[in-house]
């Protein structure tokens, strides 16, 4: 596969809510009231329960892993969590190639909602599988 700067990579999309968050809490032992209970999320000023940043982190990894292929490598990733991922949002993980140096590819990555609200922007470096 030829990769060029500016390429948009395939997205990873999930409608997010308790079904996702509680499964993630299950594996990450992250049973935090603001992620499980609308009343607790509302009390914290977020209008309801909201998802873990760690799960968006995982979704971005899922997207990159599909892009690099079975023998590819995710070398590094950084994101900032800017807005909460609230119940019922359709969250999409995106990536655009920003640089190619040898076999290392840099990408701008982010998650956004169905309304285009950017939740977690960041960057990543990967090496494509052979």
């Amino acid at each position: 596969m030829t990769v060029n700067v500016g390429d948009v990579i395939p997205t990873f999309v999930r409608e997010t809510g308790f079904a996702n968050w509680n499964r993630y809490a299950a594996v990450n032992d992250e049973f935090v009231p603001i992620h499980m209970d609308d009343a607790a999320g509302e009390a914290a000023g977020n209008g309801g329960a909201f998802g873990m940043g760690n799960l968006q982190w995982a979704y971005l990894h899922n997207m990159l892993r599909a892009f690099v292929g079975e023998n590819g490598e995710i070398l590094g990733m950084e994101v900032q969590f800017r807005s909460p991922n609230v119940k019922g949002q359709t969250l999409t993980a995106h990536g655009v190639v920003t640089g190619i140096e040898g076999d290392v590819i840099s990408l701008e990555i982010w998650t956004d909602t169905q309304d285009g609200l950017k939740l977690a922007p960041g960057s990543a470096t990967v090496r494509m599988g052979k």
Binding site: A44, G53, I74, L75, G76, M77, E78, V79, Q80
Partner: peptide, 12 residues
Amino acid sequence: MVGVNGGMDCKY
């Protein structure tokens, strides 16, 4: 009042 996850930066 609040503690939130601001972000992560990871090298594998």
